[in-house]
Write a protein that binds this DNA or RNA. Structure first.
Length: 978
RNA sequence: GCCCGGGUGGCGGAACUGGUUAUACGCGAAGGACUUAAAAUCCUUUGUUCGCAAGGACAUGUGGGUUCGACUCCCACCCCGGGCACCA
């Protein structure tokens, strides 16, 4: 069979028949299915074998859904703006426009060979002016609605790419693209207020059928945290409090009584504002300068070691206890998050703890762990007794065993323990208890295991509930010398030494056990869990969660604080200083700027965005697109400005408002701009001009299935959701999420296990594979090689397997015989099982097992001398989404059908035929397989038992053994327990 | 450090909500058939180990546990991949 020839032939016929036109597919179909690939960046290197993995999967889905009666839209396009295209063009000294169109041509050729169902009428290209007209239009809408602002804050700058970066574009604190260390540089930027959508973006995740890890990643990226702001009044030079204050943000208001100092970020305004009153201003300034010099990369590297310096001369007052605490400046506090200042609670925050240790600052414990004994939980209705306890953990250093007591009556194992008497020292109490209960009297104190732990439990022996505040004390045994122990006690308790490994939460009957374990081995640590408050005045005894509520209420009442929600996510730096991107549809006009600043303008004369950014005037919609001009040199200017600044005739433009002279914005949009909405662009009405087509948008959105790599989890997928939600809010789209279901494909690695790259010379070109094995084989192999979501190494040998399979399927057509229907009845069970399996597997993206099921069926069919056409047709149909060429050839050429197999109905299975009435009964003895026999389904347990026990093998194995128990799993197995 | 995902034969990988002898399907390897020969194709074998054999023992990262029965559940640990990076 010459697959090269049949591939070409069918490709042509399909095109002529237009079977993949979504319009045609959609006509009269009651259900739609919009299946989308992440469109490629047409790089100069062409496709490698890894790229099409996702495309094949969507293609299988598209074909499967079509056969199931859906109207399917499956488009493809090109994401062609951005740095790589520009760098490629610079390197090869050709205009990016030309390079891009060349690359696209090559990509399209390569893709076409796979026989995808793409409707090429819908093809789009982000660099087409008719396309980016609408990118600009959406930007204008955002601008108009006040979601865009100009910023001169220091932004992240990559000196090698000579462009600004968004926070998301960093990798290990360096530039994602070139890996070089980034700097902070103050540059004029456009920023999109993505934070305004933080809550919506977070909330929307709930409704999405996306892989949980991706949702989790987005959730973490958005990083919502609910807390409180608190104003700490300032005092200077030990004078009375001023009216000025410093505001901090915390999520652990419950720990505020443990606050022993405050820390502000180096950028905090306090420092400048208080220059004169800060006694060590010189030192502080020096520290800040040093911190400012650290790039993000260094800051990350040095993250382990915290640095800081006290701001002398000013102190802050904790509003809850009026204590004065010192203020530090340290770069572990971030200027851009919360209020740029924190209250430090070293006892309950790891970072503060580390800092406090280093600088010898007081650590005050205000939260103690709280445990409810799961084995002996408090019983309602019983009285509750509160007491202070001590647990004595006595270790024998010779063998590392621990001293325990087993109650003969209650069978529980405990450490020597008891109540602390009034004014008694904990260590003394522990020694006393050990001596009283076990007799051992020579103990060496190792250390007290931290503070108290609160625990609630039911004390059986006293028939009352207990709330115990317990301290653990660790001793080493010096020698075996003992005092006598009370007779009565000794009768009821067994003394035992337990191995270190057995001192765990299971054997020991203490709710506090996990805390002791942590404290026994670990060095001192901050306890960051929620618990019960101590040393917190009126709030003492409350649980953390309750305390936070009550304390917040108190703050609000006294107007010294408020509840506050913060997000880690930042606004999106949406400007690049490069040539190859969408120009901003904005003109700067001095006259308009003056007008706005003076306030002498009419209502409605300027848009919200124009007022927010005085002087920047929107190009009117009818003048879009603002075309990217041709330039002689599109090298970055190096000054931090785009090369566009040098094209005077383009830069100088009339102000759209007052017609005075103005200047165009010369930054361009980042690569993500075009890819933010391309799934909508496929629905645009095309002609000489592209027209926004609300009807078509309403018809097709949302995307039902979106397939692409995980690497876009926090960027493309978040940006696109942001734009979509905005478009929804202004009524341009009718769904509030763009992508209903998302599937991630795993990477295909090179045969050496590394990423495929020109650099390693390990790239496999699909063209070569198709030439040797055919398009069907590569499609089938990529779906068969492993679970779709998992990264996997390419193995050209593996493709032989699927290629042989296709050959065998082809050969099966040589023994077709309509008369063999009766004979083939035996296949019914397997065929129906296979239909079920393949159907379900395609739905769930388990292509590898679907193909395996098809192989099993084909293998079975081979055993028959003749094969009925009906059965063969079923196999071919099931295979058709994976191998469109071969199956079409068989369908039309061999079976002589007129219409394409790809427009056929998907086979249905008959459950009745799957169910067999016999099964192989597995007989186990003590859970081990011993024999199997045929048995009828639905036979009673008694009969099965008889059958099993009558088996010769079982008879001999059971012998004289006594049968303790028989476990019978219906229609599966029987297990005889001896 | 924190958060995800994952560890099964020489390799890629199967195994439903704990239950039809773990390793389906494919690759590779070994032997055989066809051939002058090779390729292709077809047939057989293929987890490890003990045994002449019948048959047994051991095997799903490691160590424990729950269960009549564990790849599947629980606890502890080790390793690999990805994400985040002091977010108070």
């Amino acid at each position: 069979m010459d697959f090269g020839k049949i591939e070409k032939k069918w490709q042509k016929i399909w095109y002529k028949e237009g079977i993949y036109k979504s319009a045609g597919w959609r006509n009269g179909k009651p259900k739609k299915f919009y299946v989308l690939d992440m469109f490629p960046y047409p790089s100069g290197e062409g496709l490698h074998v890894g790229h099409p993995r996702g495309y094949i999967a969507t293609d299988v889905s598209a074909r499967y859904k079509t056969m199931n009666g859906y109207g399917v839209l499956h488009p493809m396009g090109w994401d062609a703006f951005g740095l790589p295209a520009e760098n490629y063009a610079l390197k090869h000294k050709i205009h990016p426009k030309i390079a891009v169109s060349k690359n696209i041509k090559r990509f399209k050729e390569q893709l076409s060979k796979f026989g995808f169902t793409y409707d090429w009428d819908k093809e789009i290209n982000t660099t087409d002016p008719e396309y980016y007209k609408w990118t600009q239009w959406i930007f204008l809408k955002m601008f108009e609605n006040g979601l865009v602002y100009e910023s001169r804050e220091p932004i992240i700058w990559c000196p090698s790419c000579r462009t600004s970066l968004a926070l998301e574009d960093l990798e290990n604190g360096g530039c994602e693209r070139c890996g070089s260390a980034v700097e902070k540089k103050p540059l004029r930027q456009w920023v999109l207020k993505m934070t305004a959508y933080a809550e919506k973006l977070l909330d929307g995740l709930k409704s999405l059928d996306w892989p949980e890890p991706i949702k989790e990643q987005q959730k973490n990226w958005i990083g919502k945290s609910e807390g409180t702001t608190i104003k700490f009044k300032l005092t200077t030079n030990n004078q009375r409090p001023t009216t000025e204050y410093i505001e901090v943000f915390t999520t652990r208001l419950d720990t505020i009584f443990g606050c022993t100092y405050l820390v502000v970020a180096p950028e905090h305004p306090l420092i400048k504002n208080y220059e004169l009153r800060i006694k060590n201003y010189g030192e502080v300034k020096k520290y800040i300068n040093q911190a400012g010099k650290k790039t993000d990369l260094m800051r990350t590297d040095l993250a382990k070691e915290k640095t800081g310096i006290e701001i002398k001369g000013i102190k802050a007052i904790n509003p809850f206890n009026n204590e004065e605490v010192p203020i530090f400046v340290a770069d572990y506090v971030l200027g851009g998050y919360g209020t740029g200042a924190v209250m430090a609670v070293p006892a309950h925050d790891e970072r503060d703890f580390e800092f406090a240790k280093k600088y010898n600052l007081p650590i005050k414990e205000v939260i103690i762990p709280n445990r409810i004994d799961k084995r002996n939980p408090p019983v309602s209705g019983k009285k509750t007794e509160e007491r202070k306890n001590v647990h004595a953990l006595v270790r024998n250093p010779k063998n590392n065993k621990f001293l325990c007591l087993k109650s003969k009556k209650f069978l529980w194992i405990t450490f020597p323990m008891g109540g602390i008497e009034r004014d008694e020292d904990v260590v003394d109490a522990a020694r006393r208890e050990v001596e009283e209960e076990t007799g051992y009297k020579n103990l060496k104190l190792v250390r007290v295991l931290g503070g108290e732990v609160r625990a609630e439990y039911f004390a059986k022996h006293k028939n009352e509930n207990r709330v115990a505040y317990t301290t653990g004390v660790l001793f080493d045994l010096i020698n075996e010398e003992k005092s006598p122990v009370e007779k009565e006690w000794e009768d009821e308790h067994e003394l035992m030494w337990i191995n270190e490994s057995d001192v765990n939460c299971e054997t020991m009957c203490h709710a506090e056990m996990d805390v002791w374990l942590k404290r026994i081995k670990g060095e001192e640590q901050a306890c960051t869990e929620d618990g019960v408050l101590i040393n917190s005045k009126d709030f003492t005894g409350l649980e953390s969660e309750v305390a936070r509520e009550k304390m917040a209420a108190w703050l609000i009442k006294n107007k010294i604080g408020n509840k506050k929600i913060n997000y880690k996510m930042r606004d999106w730096v949406f400007a690049r200083q490069r040539y190859w991107g969408e120009p901003f549809p904005l003109v700067y006009c001095e006259a308009c700027a003056e007008k706005i600043k003076s306030g002498k303008y009419k209502k409605g004369e300027f848009t919200k965005g124009e007022l927010m950014n005085p002087g920047w005037v929107q190009i009117s919609e009818k003048d879009l697109p603002v075309k990217l001009p041709n330039v002689k040199s599109y090298e970055p200017s190096g000054t931090g400005e785009s090369p566009l600044v040098n094209i005077k005739e383009w830069v100088n433009a009339r102000c759209p408002k007052c017609k005075g002279l103005g200047k165009r914005e010369t930054n361009t949009m980042p690569q993500w701009a075009g890819s933010n909405w391309y799934y909508i662009a496929y629905l645009i009405k095309k002609g000489k001009k592209y027209e926004w087509d609300k009807k078509e948008i309403k018809k097709w959105l949302p995307v039902d299935l979106y397939v692409g790599g995980v690497e876009h989890a926090t960027r493309h997928l978040l940006y696109a959701r942001f734009w979509h939600k905005f478009l929804y809010d202004i009524g341009e789209v009718s769904t509030n999420e763009p992508f209903k279901k998302l599937m991630n494909q795993g990477l295909i690695l090179a045969e050496d296990g590394r990423k495929m790259s020109k650099r390693w010379k390990n790239v496999v070109n699909p063209d070569d594979i198709i030439k040797v094995f055919g398009a069907d084989a590569i499609r089938l192999y990529e779906m068969f090689m492993g679970p779709f979501g998992q990264s996997i190494a390419w193995n050209t040998d593996g493709i032989k397997g699927v290629s042989r399979f296709l050959d065998r399927v082809w050969k099966l057509s040589q023994k077709l015989d309509n008369k063999s229907r009766e004979e083939n009845k035996k296949l019914d069970g397997l065929i129906n099982k296979t239909i079920k399996k393949v159907t379900e597997d395609i739905e769930e993206f388990r292509f590898n097992t679907a193909i395996s099921a098809l192989m099993i069926l084909a293998n079975e069919m081979e055993k028959y001398p003749q094969l009925s056409i009906t059965n063969y047709q079923l196999l071919i149909k099931l295979l058709s989404p994976f191998a469109p060429f071969l199956t079409e050839e068989i369908w039309r050429k061999v079976l002589g059908k007129k219409k394409s197999i790809h427009l056929e109905k998907w086979p249905k299975y008959d459950t009745k035929l799957i169910v067999e009435n016999k099964f192989k009964l597995i007989i186990q003895i003590n859970g081990k397989f011993r024999d199997s026999i045929e048995a009828g389904k639905g036979v009673s347990e008694e009969e099965i038992k008889k059958l099993a026990l009558n088996s010769e093998k079982i008879k001999t194995l059971v012998g004289n053994g006594k049968i303790k128990r028989v476990i019978y799993v219906k229609d599966r197995l029987i297990n005889i327990v001896l």
